[in-house]
């Protein structure tokens, strides 16, 4: 790869980071919102006993981490639309760099931001007494976090390439993302209900949440083994990123 392309990737990454650090409201809300979920759902459902779930907070924490990474990365993908509307995209597209570098830089930037947010929530969960597994588990956790981030950026790119404005985004969030998230076992186990369990098998988010949970938490019951989940998630990630990059490269400014 040429030095120019690496420089271009770096610029795209740096831009994401600068924007993230400067946008205080985004910084605060991206951490506060998952924490609300963690505290409110955590304390509310703690008294309810789900079948096969030990400590509910330990069950919930990976779900919330996945959610935070998902939302943050999707936002990065969709912010292409923002750049398109405010003209900045043209400036990038007219530069002598390949579109692939633009996508890689942006994805890495978005993933870095998402990982920072996910890690903050992970640390807070630790402080709240969530029991996590050892080094290998953490490596797996990190892998899942990265893959979730990439997949979600890809998904965001798909939406951004196909949509003209922001109205459609709300629709996608409430009609696609939220239902998938609720059916992913992020907040409660899907195993108790057979219908829900069979739906979950077709839900990409389910494999991510289940895998993240299995890698991160000690002694939790998961549907699939982390390794199995990992393989499936890698495929989903490659699939989503390919469609996202393809549509983005076809996009006319």
């Amino acid at each position: 790869m040429k030095a120019t392309e690496i420089q271009a990737i770096y610029v795209m990454w740096l831009r994401q980071m600068k924007r993230f650090i400067r946008s205080k409201s985004r910084l605060v809300s991206s951490i506060v919102q998952p924490l609300f979920f963690l505290f409110i759902l955590g304390s509310g459902f703690r008294v309810a006993i789900f079948e096969g779930v030990g400590d509910y907070l330990s069950f919930l924490a990976p779900g919330i981490i996945a959610m935070a990474i998902l939302f943050s990365s999707m936002f990065t993908g969709i912010s292409v639309l923002w750049d398109k509307q405010f003209g900045f995209l043209q400036e990038v597209l007219v530069a002598p760099i390949s579109r692939i570098s633009i996508i890689i830089g942006r994805t890495l930037g978005g993933a870095t931001v998402a990982l920072i947010q996910g890690s903050i929530i992970l640390l807070i969960s630790l402080a709240l007494g969530v029991q996590i597994s050892g080094a290998i588990g953490l490596i797996f956790t990190l892998l899942f976090m990265v893959l979730i981030a990439f997949t979600a950026v890809g998904f965001g790119l798909v939406i951004a390439s196909k949509m003209e404005d922001f109205q459609g985004f709300q629709l996608i969030m409430s009609l696609v993302v939220m239902p998938l998230l609720f059916l992913s076992s992020a907040f409660f186990p899907v195993t108790s209900n057979p219908t829900m369990k069979s739906i979950a098998m077709f839900n990409p988010l389910f494999y991510m949440v289940d895998g993240l949970r299995g890698s991160l938490i000690i002694g939790v019951e998961t549907v699939n083994s982390p390794l199995f989940n990992l393989i499936i998630v890698i495929f989903i990630c490659i699939f989503m990123m390919s469609i996202g990059s393809y549509l983005f490269s076809k996009m006319e400014s």
Partner: peptide, 21 residues
């Protein structure tokens, strides 16, 4: 307008220059 309004003027120019090696 095709500027990144969240960055400084200098950064806008610097990022541009980097993309042009």
């Amino acid at each position: 307008p095709a500027l990144d309004t969240e960055l400084t003027g200098g950064e806008n120019l610097d990022y541009h220059a980097r993309m042009y090696a």
